[in-house]
Simulated assay, not measured.
Amino acid sequence: MDLNTVSARRSPVRRLAQLVGGLTLYGASMGLMVRGALGLNPWDTLHEALSERTGLTFGLVTGLVGAVVLLCWVPLRQRPGIGTVANILVIAVAVDGTLALVDPPEAMAVRIALMLGGVVLNGLATATYIGIRLGAGPRDGLMTGLAARTGLSIRVVRTGIELAVLAVGWLLGGTVGVGTVVYALAIGPLTQAFLPWVTWRAPAPTTTAA
């Protein structure tokens, strides 16, 4: 048995492990930014506001919002993958687990460290689960589906969605601050920098001699 055959057989296990690992890191990064309390990304601003108003845990709200967004895929004719479902479930558990383990700090230096660490970890996590190519997350699929249906660019659609979500979250009482700005400026470059290290590539096909 050659190395390519062994690699091909191991690929599903490796890809699933990377998917779960990436989504777990993503949830952890969200929890760190929440504990930093210096500003959240647009979707988490909404999640925090809904959590405070409903009394539901942050992770449960994240999962419920993801499920609602997934329903919006139907008229957009988007098809979910295993990564789409895992995105909803794993992140919800990971963020609540992180919030249970990490207490809110009082020192500003610790809060800044949590915020910056959360942003960097989020960039790595985003690259990790995107690079494995097992299905877009609900929010990413909404973005690509709207872009395809409207003819607008991904940049315009994403900006519009995130500004709308941020505005609603802020009006409902979610945290907006310097962390929100840092995230907006850094997440793209960070994800791009990490992608080459975590993108899955199919094993090269073997050739047999005639």
Rank of each mutant, 00 (worst) to 15 (best):
G117V: 07
R79G: 07
V178N: 00
G173S: 02
L146V: 03
D103I: 11
T159C: 11
L163Y: 11
T199Y: 13
L3V: 13
L146D: 07
A209F: 09
L70H: 00
V119T: 10
V93K: 06
L146R: 01
V85M: 09
R35D: 07
A113E: 03
W73C: 09
R158W: 00
V95R: 02
V90K: 02
A204R: 14
M108K: 10
I130A: 14
P189D: 00
F194A: 11
G55V: 05
E106A: 15
D140N: 08
A17L: 15
A202N: 12
T126P: 07
G151L: 10
Y26S: 12
G39H: 05
G188V: 01
T126I: 11
R111A: 05
G160C: 07
F58S: 02
A86S: 13
E162P: 03
T84P: 08
S29D: 06
F58P: 03
T180M: 04
G131Y: 03
L40T: 06
Q192T: 15
L166Q: 01
R9E: 15
S153E: 02
R133F: 11
L56H: 10
P138Y: 02
L195Y: 09
G169C: 03
F194H: 01
G55S: 08
L152M: 14
C72H: 06
G39W: 02
V157Y: 05
P75F: 05
G66Q: 02
S153I: 04
E106K: 15
A86R: 00
Y26Q: 12
L40D: 04
G22H: 02
R133E: 15
S153F: 01
R77N: 13
L172G: 07
A204C: 06
E48N: 12
T150F: 03
V178F: 09
R35A: 14
T24R: 06
A202M: 11
F58N: 01
L60Q: 13
G21L: 05
R53K: 12
G55P: 01
D2Y: 09
P75C: 07
A164P: 06
D96R: 01
P80Y: 03
L23Y: 01
F194D: 02
A107N: 14
L124H: 09
I154H: 11
G36Q: 01
G141T: 04
R10S: 14
P205S: 03
G31N: 05
T24C: 09
L38C: 07
G22P: 00
L114M: 08
A209D: 12
T84M: 10
T126S: 10
A167T: 09
V85H: 05
L64W: 02
G83Y: 03
P75M: 07
T62W: 10
A167F: 10
V176R: 05
A210R: 15
A167E: 05
G179C: 00
S11P: 10
L60E: 12
T5W: 11
V110Y: 04
Q192H: 14
N87W: 06
A125L: 06
R158D: 00
G131I: 00
G141H: 04
P205Y: 04
L25T: 05
S11H: 13
L38A: 01
L89I: 11
T159G: 11
L70D: 06
R9N: 15
Q78T: 09
T207N: 12
N41Q: 15
H47W: 08
P42A: 07
M1G: 14
